[in-house]
Amino acid sequence: MNELSLTRALYALLKRDLLLAVRRRSELANPILFFVLITTLFPLGIGADAKLLQSIAPGIIWVAALLAALLSLDHLFRSDFEDGTLEQLLLSAHPVSLLVITKVLAHWLITGLPLLIVSPLLALLLGLPADMVGVLMLSLLLGTPVLSLIGAIGVALTVGLRRSGVILSLLVLPLYVPVLIFASNAVDTAMSGMPVTGQLAMLAALLVLSLTLAPLATAAALRMSLS
């Protein structure tokens, strides 16, 4: 048996995850549908007052993105856990935290990126000014990977449980609070015409921090779940 080099192993893992996702297209669409549905529920629930909707649009879109990310998290490790792939990954000679980053990247490409792509549509639905869409997308670009990275810890902790849905949200949602605050605040601030570099810099900092620390915690949690 010849050993794969690290980069080739990571590339193979990424390719495999993406391929699996493409083969199951209906699952691929679910988070996006959920995202759009949640967002359309808000105007129905609070009335179609354009001004009110515009002022709470950043919050609505971000809460919907948060919930969509949460909903899709379980796919991250679940099927690999059930068919034993995860065990093989942990047994491989490569650092688990790097494998985790690769899996999270694949997961973000499958679930986070589509949210980013449909978000301008939702922004228009809620009457967000057109020049705010850029800030919204930038905040989603910086924020959604953080959601995937933090979520990975929660999934790794609960993957061994039979019914993990409610516990997963209890574990993960409190940790999502800073992202929600900075991201929706960035769009809010932009709407009142002030610079948003501060908020975006904070989001980027959160991204760097979670990119460095979250994979370590996820790896430890995976080892715990599989022991």
């Binding site: 609070v177 800073p178 900075f182 959160l206």
Partner: peptide
């Protein structure tokens, strides 16, 4: 016990962030 220890440590990193963001 190991699971909650990991979770508690993740929380410790997050508490200051949550606190200051809020």
């Amino acid at each position: 016990s190991r699971a909650i220890a990991i979770l508690a440590l993740v929380g410790v990193v997050n508490i200051p962030i949550i606190h200051y963001s809020v």
